[in-house]
């Protein structure tokens, strides 16, 4: 696990093989002079799910908006799919961005039109764009929404449509900003499984910015913890979620499974296996109960 010591002297790193997004020493300052990102280094490799964890105002959304070149780096280096992003580079549409506010993202008169918007901008013909849109909606199990009007959709449905909108553009990477915030548990799980299936079934790399630690624990291959515009830790979910000081510094809670495990271990001997997901904890408890049974 790396920590904040590396950030005091930020250096550009070598681009690694299979690295889809490479960020070095990224700085971002708001027009009023407030620094929102400072010396941020970030990597995304093919086929992985990376979760950026941080409290509100930590700089997650600003970082996310850099990842497809929507916001250009003024200081630092950003390489996306082998292409260095400069002030003159356009938005890289192979990296699809799903915004937190789906109301602003889904703006066309019908769901089909909205999902077709991206492919049409990429130069698809109307028929090809329609096909791409229908395929994208089917892929995420939202084909029933095709002819619906966005105004009448629920938040969860809008979020699905927003994901379909970027999926129709055949992205290599999908970046989702707070994908499950303000959703009910059902739609939250639905979005989570859609993102997971995109990784497993279609080998699309995913970046998720969230402060939902349970989601991060369930879905992440690697985690970046961000606080006050700086990456304060990176590592596997197990590395991060059993590091109390990192979570405290970032004003984040432990995932439910970790919290329960720690409570269960109080006063008793801890297992070598440290569960991160609820599923892991259940397995562990089943083992313990199995041993205890006569």
């Amino acid at each position: 696990m790396s920590n904040d010591k590396q950030l005091s002297a930020c250096e550009f790193r070598e681009l690694e093989e299979d690295e889809l997004i490479h960020v070095d020493c990224l700085e971002h300052v708001y027009p009023d002079g407030t620094s929102s990102l400072h010396n941020v280094c970030f990597s995304l490799f093919k086929g992985e799910i990376v979760v950026i964890c941080g409290a509100n105002g930590a700089g997650k959304s600003t970082l996310v908006e850099h990842l497809n070149g929507l916001v250009k780096p003024k200081v630092g280096r950003l390489v996306v799919l082998g292409q260095e992003v400069t002030q003159k580079t356009g938005v890289i549409t192979e990296v699809g961005l799903v915004f937190q506010d789906s109301d602003s993202q889904v703006f066309a008169p019908t769901v089909l039109d909205d999902v077709m918007f991206g492919p049409l901008n990429k130069g698809f013909t109307a028929d090809a764009a329609r096909l791409a849109a229908i395929c994208a909606l089917e892929r995420i199990g939202a084909a029933h929404l095709t002819n619906r009007i966005p105004y009448y959709l629920s938040r969860g449905e809008k979020r699905l449509v927003a994901i379909a909108g970027v999926l129709a553009m055949n992205p290599e990477v999908i970046v989702a900003d707070e994908p499950t915030s303000d959703l009910d548990p059902f739609h939250s799980r639905q979005i989570e499984s859609v993102l997971f299936e995109l990784k497993t079934d279609f080998r699309i790399s995913i970046v998720i910015a969230t402060h939902d630690m349970d989601l991060a624990a369930r879905i992440a291959d690697r985690i970046y913890v961000i606080a006050e515009g700086q990456v304060i830790a990176t590592g596997t979910p197990r590395d991060i979620f059993y590091n109390k000081s990192v979570l405290a510094r970032a004003n984040l809670n432990e995932p439910t499974a970790v919290r329960l495990y720690k409570r269960l271990c109080q006063g008793g001997s801890a297992s070598d296996f440290k569960p991160v997901k609820e599923h892991d904890l259940v397995k562990l408890l089943e083992g313990v109960i199995g041993k205890a049974e006569p």
């Binding site: 929507l70 356009g90 549409t93 699809g96 993202q105 703006f107 918007f117 909108g165 553009m169």
Partner: peptide, 12 residues
Amino acid sequence: HVAKAMQSRGYQ
């Protein structure tokens, strides 16, 4: 917000 969402989907 809308402009950002449109740009990120290739609107030029």
